[in-house]
Design a binder for these strands. Structure first.
Lengths: 142, 142
DNA sequence: CCAATTAGTTGTCGTTTGATAACTAAATAA
DNA sequence: TTATTTAGTTATCAAACGACAACTAATTGG
């Protein structure tokens, strides 16, 4: 039937997701780092261990630019590089204790806002949301 | 029960939505305009009539910066400003014929990619997706 | 062993973007 | 009528970001 209508929904929904995540990030993102640097830290935080190349691929940036930003993060003592013994060209990027602490507390602040958002939802509504997310992530946002 | 697990899902889902929309925009966004300019055109396209102030509020930008970008879009002949007769301080922003055509064809390209994504979905799956979007948009991404 | 590839670095450039101050013109409130 | 507020403009500045060229060092393939 009308896939067309679904497209409208998709556009409006994507915008809504953007708005909400933008608002949350605006309230929770550490101020001493730039948005791009935050994205890098977040990526290192959720998918360790990562290499500079991994970050390039996932965040759609060039190696030179990643290298520059990683150096800045290293200067700020948020990350450290460890040369891989197997292949000494490669290096894995790790959060320092401080970097880890920053990301941890950022995610805690994000979770607070998230819980506020769904605070009044019933047990069944939560179940439905979980199902809905799973459905959309497998069929549409894959 | 475990709202915690839902938070994990939320984070992962938001990232997935970002990845998909980013990939789509990358493939469909007109090359002669900057990302910010595209966002402005898109906003004018989907929610007319708009004023410069509306754009500020919705896109989280300052009036001077909006004014600058609108002027660039005007120079490129994608928009025009009409002074509101009721209050001559205000102006409504409109797409020119060319601007309209560009946004129309951009959205058509977006829709093609969207239809590819859901191409093999059954009637029932489409219904479920529609429901899922509606649920999440009302309970989570509002 | 030598050539080619891979991983990452450094430097440089220009554009985009965000922020701020100082301004004009129109409308509203006192 | 004058003061204030509102809508938008212009100019300027610095930071952030993307792109590119040239480079080093390690590894792999022939």
């Amino acid at each position: 039937m009308d896939k067309n209508n679904l497209f409208q929904q998709f556009v409006s929904f994507s915008a809504a997701v953007y708005d909400v995540t933008h608002a949350i990030k605006k309230q929770t993102m550490p101020k001493h780092i730039t948005p791009v640097q935050y994205n890098i830290l977040e990526y290192i935080f959720v998918s360790p261990p990562v290499t500079a190349s991994d970050i390039c691929d996932c965040l759609h940036m060039s190696m030179p630019n990643i290298s520059r930003e990683l150096k800045k993060l290293q200067d700020k003592q948020y990350i450290e590089k460890r040369i891989s013994p197997a292949d000494r060209r490669k290096q894995t990027i790790h959060l320092t204790t401080e970097g880890q602490a920053i990301m941890q507390s950022t995610f805690e602040r994000i979770e607070v806002l998230f819980q506020q958002r769904i605070g009044n939802a019933s047990e069944e509504e939560l179940r439905n949301m979980r199902q809905a997310i799973q459905l959309l992530q497998s069929k549409l946002f894959y």
